[in-house]
């Protein structure tokens, strides 16, 4: 049980999917217009994540290695459909607020990433706690970002006005551009911690500076290189190209220009 607790804390703090791993940026930017929406999206994702980790961990020895990514996708998509129908029936207001982003939980990197890197290798109880920790960490991060945007953009948190009367809301923060600015501030803050850590001599390789490497590597390592890589050798070479694609493409460009 102690191990499960550690796994929970790991997902919540040490490897927080948004603040540390920078995964699942699309819903992060899109639905955090208010703290309530962020919380709703976070909890919905948590439910899907816990269930998918649970199911994938149960079936981990039954799914053939070659088709595991498609199998995971089918499991996740089914769970998302169930959750979507439940929300439609019991929480229609949340369903309307989140709209198309609920079915899009399917393509959230966090879920497939955890399925591939954790649930397919670990026991059921541990996987559930991993999913729970990651999900709560995700929900917490979304709520924080949503709250910041809501305070700056509307002067409220969860619909309660908290700013003094003279405060004029900077409405850009609840519009689309504000999402980019808040995320930029967040990433910059993370860089500050990273620079400080490096000065003290602590090198934390898990902390990455931004979406660039992580998002792409999430797509590569958890989906593509394996999805495409297990077919044959030719594809293996291809997936290596994909993994380093940014680097290689840039180099190619340089040589062609010269």
């Amino acid at each position: 049980m102690n191990k499960a607790g550690t796994q929970f804390l790991n997902g919540f703090l040490k490897e927080n999917p948004i603040f540390v791993l920078m995964l699942g940026m699309c819903p992060t930017l899109a639905v955090t217009t208010s703290a309530m929406n962020g919380l709703g999206m976070g909890l919905t994702t948590t439910v899907v994540l816990v269930m998918s980790n649970f199911l994938i961990s149960i079936f981990r020895n039954m799914i053939p290695n070659k088709v595991r990514i498609p199998a995971f996708i089918v499991i996740i998509a089914s769970l998302v459909t169930i959750v979507e129908l439940l929300l439609k029936a019991y929480l229609p207001s949340l369903n309307d607020a989140l709209g198309i982003y609920i079915p899009l939980i399917v393509v959230n990197c966090i879920i497939l990433g955890r399925a591939e890197s954790f649930a397919s290798k670990n026991k059921v109880i541990l996987s559930i706690f991993d999913g729970f920790g990651m999900g709560i960490g995700f929900a917490f991060a979304l709520t924080c970002i949503g709250a910041v945007r809501e305070i700056l953009g509307a002067g409220e948190v969860f619909g309660f006005g908290i700013m003094p009367e003279g405060f004029i809301p900077i409405s850009i923060f609840i519009l689309a551009p504000g999402a980019f600015f808040v995320l930029a501030g967040l990433t910059a803050l993370q860089n500050v911690f990273k620079i400080r850590g490096e000065k003290k001599g602590i090198v934390n390789t898990k902390i990455q500076s931004g979406c660039n490497s992580d998002c792409m590597s999430c797509g590569d390592s958890s989906c593509h290189s394996k999805f495409y890589g297990t077919e044959d050798d030719d594809k293996n070479i291809k997936s290596e190209i994909v993994e380093n694609d940014l680097l290689i493409l840039d180099i190619n460009d340089d040589t062609e220009v010269e």
């Binding site: 551009p177 995320l183 990433t187 860089n191 500076s209 931004g210």
Partner: peptide, 23 residues
């Protein structure tokens, strides 16, 4: 650019400014 904003943050700010333009 300020050290903390090197890399991804400055790109995100650029994207935000583009979003304002597209608005």
């Amino acid at each position: 650019v300020p050290k903390a904003f090197k890399g991804m943050p400055i790109v995100l700010i650029t994207a935000g400014l583009m979003a304002i333009a597209f608005y």
